[in-house]
């Protein structure tokens, strides 16, 4: 019996998640009210993108070295989603954003994202295939390559969104040394701890996955964020009740 329950738990959880996203999406489609708390990293990112366009400075997005095959792929996909929003917002800039990654698939996808963003904004000639760069294939080689690019391009803002290790501190430090704002988040706990100390605007825990909502990616992003919040409450209650039952010897 316990085996069947644990076997069914995964699909049921996923089904509940999808249903919640659908319900929140359907009910929130026409809503214009702001329903999320302010997250300063994304508010600042939106501001620096606008300032970079006005001042004609470069923006740098770094997607990490985690690749897409594995759980770390989700953080890189969030980075790509943010890149799409940043590329659209900066499409009228003289100096379009540059992207670095430590994985071949991410480089290909970043080039694809830039191309489709410029196409959607009807500025196809802005697209430069070399704007999406592989900066290295091992964590430190990737960091060293991205640091060189930061020094050469002097970006006014660096969005480090993806899977990193503790070497992300070198990137954050390089960004700060070049006078740019560093907004950073990772799915890796060690990198989050490092970024909390090293970045101007660190994204901790699930904050990384909320970017689309703050950069106007649409109602589906808001719906998935609400579903995340609802299920986090449910899981927190289950964990606390389970711990109390265990403490009282009832389970």
């Amino acid at each position: 019996m316990a085996d069947i329950i644990s076997f069914l738990l995964g699909p049921i959880f996923l089904l509940v998640f999808v249903t919640l996203v659908g319900v929140f999406w359907f009910t929130g489609r026409k809503s214009t009210a702001r329903e999320v708390r302010d997250l300063s990293p994304f508010i600042r990112l939106r501001r620096v993108v606008g300032l970079a366009v006005e001042a004609g400075t470069r923006l740098h997005v770094s997607l990490g070295w985690g690749g897409l095959i594995g759980v770390q792929g989700a953080s890189a996909l969030v980075g790509l989603s943010l890149l799409d929003r940043i590329a659209r917002a900066a499409s009228i800039s003289d100096r379009p954003p540059v992207v670095t990654a430590g994985d071949g698939v991410l480089v290909t996808l970043s080039q694809n994202t830039l191309r489709s963003a410029y196409h959607a904004m009807d500025v196809d000639d802005q697209y430069d295939p070399q704007a999406g760069q592989l900066s290295g294939v091992s964590p430190f080689a990737y960091a060293a390559g991205a640091m060189t690019l930061m020094q050469a391009e002097q970006p006014s803002a660096n969005a480090l969104i993806g899977h990193f290790g503790s070497e992300v501190a070198l990137l954050a430090e390089a960004g700060e040394r070049n006078g740019g704002v560093v907004i950073a988040g990772s799915d890796n706990i060690a990198a989050q701890a490092v970024l909390y100390a090293a970045a101007h605007e660190p994204l901790i825990g699930e904050e990384l996955y909320a970017g689309g909502v703050y950069l106007g990616a649409g109602a589906a992003h808001t719906a998935s964020l609400k579903a995340q919040d609802a299920l986090r409450w449910v899981l927190s209650v289950v964990l606390i009740v389970g711990a109390l039952l265990k403490l009282m010897g009832m389970w």
Binding site: L14, V21, S75, N112, L208, Y209, H221, R232, L235, S236
Partner: peptide, 21 residues
Amino acid sequence: LGVALGTIATGIRILMGVDRP
């Protein structure tokens, strides 16, 4: 816990075709 839920949400958005990297 937050990272896991965010990962699932991202996966669902990709499967639904909302995010198309």
